[in-house]
Amino acid sequence: MPERDDAEREFDLKWADNAEHKEPSARARMLAARWKHNPPGPVPFRAEPEGQRAPRRSSWISTAVVLGCVAALIVLIGYINFRAPY
């Protein structure tokens, strides 16, 4: 019997996924009802919370730090290989 139940369950899931009309979630219905009378205002993409602005650094400084770390790592690995006994 469990095999039959799994087959029926799979059929039901396929049937539900292929339905023409899908009911929105409870949250979607709640927001639609709320926004119908009080639509939200425009929000900029990736808006920063007020009072929590981080100081902006130039991208070239970050690039220089990363490249400096990579160069230091290459030099360190080369030094270790040069001093290693063969």
Rank of each mutant, 00 (worst) to 15 (best):
A32F: 02
W60A: 06
S25Y: 03
A32W: 02
R4A: 06
F11N: 11
S62P: 00
S59V: 05
A54C: 12
K36Q: 07
A47P: 00
R53N: 09
Y86H: 15
A84E: 05
I74H: 02
P40A: 11
R4P: 00
K36F: 07
W15A: 14
Q52Y: 06
N38E: 13
N18F: 08
P85H: 02
F11C: 04
P49I: 08
A26W: 04
M30C: 10
A84L: 11
A54I: 13
I61R: 03
L13N: 11
F82I: 02
E10N: 10
A32H: 04
K36C: 12
A7I: 06
G41A: 14
S59P: 01
R34M: 13
P2H: 01
R29I: 10
L31V: 13
R46W: 07
L13E: 15
R34Q: 14
N18G: 15
V75W: 06
G41K: 02
A64P: 00
P85K: 01
I74L: 15
L73V: 13
E10A: 14
F11L: 09
W15E: 12
A64T: 14
A33F: 11
L67G: 03
W35S: 04
W35Y: 15
R4E: 04
D12W: 09
P49H: 05
L31K: 15
P49Y: 02
W15N: 13
A7F: 05
K36H: 09
E50I: 08
K22W: 07
P24M: 08
A84F: 02
L73P: 00
G78F: 02
H37E: 13
P24D: 10
E50P: 00
W15L: 12
G78Y: 01
Y79R: 03
K36T: 06
I80H: 01
V43T: 11
E10K: 07
R27M: 14
A54T: 15
A32N: 07
V65C: 07
A16K: 12
R4K: 03
R29T: 11
W60Y: 13
G51Q: 03
V66W: 12
K14P: 00
F11I: 06
A7G: 01
R27W: 07
R4L: 04
